[in-house]
């Protein structure tokens, strides 16, 4: 893997009132990798994602995308630069059918620019994207109203909306949570395929066993600070990481 830094967070700090959500965190995301971000609840993972995607402005520190400062840009501008994310709590457009959910990203300035306005029939494009990620066209799943879809499909719909943006970076916020082993097993190849196609992925996840099979590197946050960084097998052996996870989950991971 070419070690080209795509995204860089430099000494980011963010407090909410007296609570320090993220403290002096720095990290690099290399082009083409899958980076895992783990840590106990409340360790600042989602806040860090919000800092990167512009939903929250850092108190200090900066975020660089392709060596350009994106700190403080509005979320839609960052999205149009090519950094997109899924939400921890799924936020589909409930009243629209699954494929219509993709109309919004397909009309984003980014997609318009990258296709030179010649995307053609957007409904067809939307349905193709959904079929790619496992919405069975024969069973008319892409045409179903979003609110009627089961959880596994909704998670994939979140991902599909990101894919429709043609992003360079996708940040998945707990995309495995609430899914069965079988459902995760269908998601994993999708993410691997995205990586093969050149998309850089950052994953926040509590399902460590599944995560560690997928990621190239992992970062551990605890109380808003970066506790460890490295390849999964090494990181998980560190005593302070084991302590942060109280041992139990770590034992599960090692089988």
């Amino acid at each position: 893997m070419a070690e080209e830094v795509l995204l860089q967070v430099k000494n980011a700090t963010k407090s909410f009132g007296g609570v320090k959500a993220v403290v002096d965190v720095s990290l690099s995301l290399f082009k083409g990798e899958i980076l895992g971000m783990i840590g106990p609840n409340g360790s600042g993972k989602t806040t860090l994602v919000n800092l990167i995607t512009g939903f929250v402005k850092p108190d200090s520190g900066e975020v660089l995308f392709k060596d350009k400062r994106i700190t403080g840009l509005q979320p839609h501008k960052i999205a149009n630069l090519g950094i997109t994310r899924t939400f921890q709590i799924m936020r589909p457009y409930h009243s629209l059918s699954a494929f219509k959910n993709l109309i919004v990203p397909l009309y984003s300035p980014r997609v318009r620019r990258s296709t030179g306005g010649r995307l053609g029939d957007r409904d067809a494009v939307a349905i193709d994207i959904l079929e790619e990620i496992g919405f069975e066209r024969d069973a008319y799943v892409p045409y179903k109203i979003a609110s009627s879809l089961p959880l596994g499909y909704l998670k994939r719909l979140e991902l599909a909306r990101c894919i429709a943006m043609r992003p360079e970076i996708i940040i998945c916020d707990e995309i495995f949570s609430g899914l069965s082993m079988a459902e995760i097993a269908t998601m994993v190849p999708l993410l691997e395929k995205l990586q093969m196609q050149g998309t850089t992925i950052m994953m926040i996840e509590h399902r460590l066993r599944e995560l560690f099979r997928l990621v190239n590197r992992v970062i551990v946050l605890n109380f808003g600070e970066k506790l460890a960084e490295g390849i999964p097998e090494e990181v998980i052996e560190k005593p302070d990481v084991r302590e942060a996870y109280l041992g139990t989950e770590v034992d599960n991971v090692r089988d």
Binding site: P75, F87, Y93, V104, P105
Partner: peptide, 25 residues
């Protein structure tokens, strides 16, 4: 219309619309 659809989508969830590149302001 697609623009109308985007506007309705925005009303349903502004945060998601932002993430999908819509300037909600």
């Amino acid at each position: 219309t697609k623009v109308g659809l985007a506007l309705r989508a925005m009303a349903q969830d502004e945060g998601a619309a932002l993430m999908l590149g819509i300037d909600t302001d």
